[in-house]
Amino acid sequence: MTAILHIDASARKERSISRTLGETFKHQWLTEKPADRFIYRDIGSTPPDFISESWIAAVFTPEEKRTDEQNLLLALSDVLIEELSEADVIVISTPMYNYGMPASLKAWIDQIVRINKTFTFDLNRGDFPLEPTLSGKFLVLITSCGEFGFEENGARETMNHLGPHLRTLSKYLGADEIHEINVEYQEFGDKRHKRSIESAYKSIPELIKRITKKLASPESPV
């Protein structure tokens, strides 16, 4: 049985393109693989706490020396990391806000990219002392944006701080393979937007087949 962690980051509950696409992905996945398990977290509606000075101090305190208060500060982080660890596939459905990720998604990332949990730090490795502890996962990014041209060599390539940021962080999520489904032109609301939505929906079944086939393969990274 495959475990899929689905993170919804849109602040909108209604008329959210990324939410609707994420729900469609889940429905079509379960149609193909009804025995699989989805772990769902709606951080758009219930954002994780931002990390604080006290949180950082707790992280860097040896586990056996932490106070009850410090353990309480890290309780949510522990749960989020456990959810991530269990997942074979991570689905992040999120809009682009101000050319980057929503604050709730950044808060989730900050809660789980944590020393001695999702990465280790060793200066004996030279200039690259950080090493992820998780691996073998598939990451699916389902994104929506108001403008267009954020792809490589696109008109707004240098303004895209959502996809590239998540790709940079993906290794700390344990992702060895990344797929993106993008909807553009939302603010224009024209035929290009309609075509972009249609293309996104059409890509979902094929992507699910590709991932499930790889998961079933003996050579799968998972």
Rank of each mutant, 00 (worst) to 15 (best):
A3P: 06
L5T: 10
H6Q: 12
H6Y: 08
I7H: 10
A11P: 15
R12L: 13
E23W: 11
E23Q: 14
W29T: 05
T31M: 02
P34D: 02
P34W: 01
F38T: 00
D42P: 05
D42K: 04
P48H: 10
D49N: 14
D49T: 14
S52L: 02
S54D: 15
A58Q: 04
F60V: 10
E64Q: 15
E64P: 02
R66D: 09
L73D: 11
L84C: 07
A87Y: 02
A87D: 07
D88N: 14
V91F: 11
I92K: 03
S93F: 04
P95A: 08
M96R: 09
N98P: 01
Y99D: 02
G100H: 09
G100M: 12
P102Q: 11
S104A: 13
A107M: 04
I109W: 09
I109R: 02
Q111R: 14
I112K: 04
R114T: 00
I115S: 12
K117L: 03
T118K: 07
T120P: 01
D122V: 15
N124P: 10
R125F: 13
G126A: 11
D127Y: 06
D127H: 03
F128R: 06
P129L: 01
P129M: 06
P129A: 06
P132I: 03
L134D: 05
L139Y: 11
L141F: 04
T143S: 12
C145K: 11
E147S: 15
E151D: 10
E152N: 05
N153I: 10
N153R: 12
L166C: 04
S170Y: 05
D176A: 01
E177T: 13
I178Y: 00
H179F: 15
N182V: 08
V183Y: 00
Y185L: 06
Q186L: 13
I197K: 01
I197A: 12
S199V: 04
S199I: 00
A200K: 07
S203W: 03
E206T: 08
L207T: 00
I208S: 03
K209D: 05
R210T: 12
R210H: 00
R210K: 14
I211V: 07
I211W: 01
I211P: 01
A216C: 03
S220K: 00
S220W: 00
P221N: 09
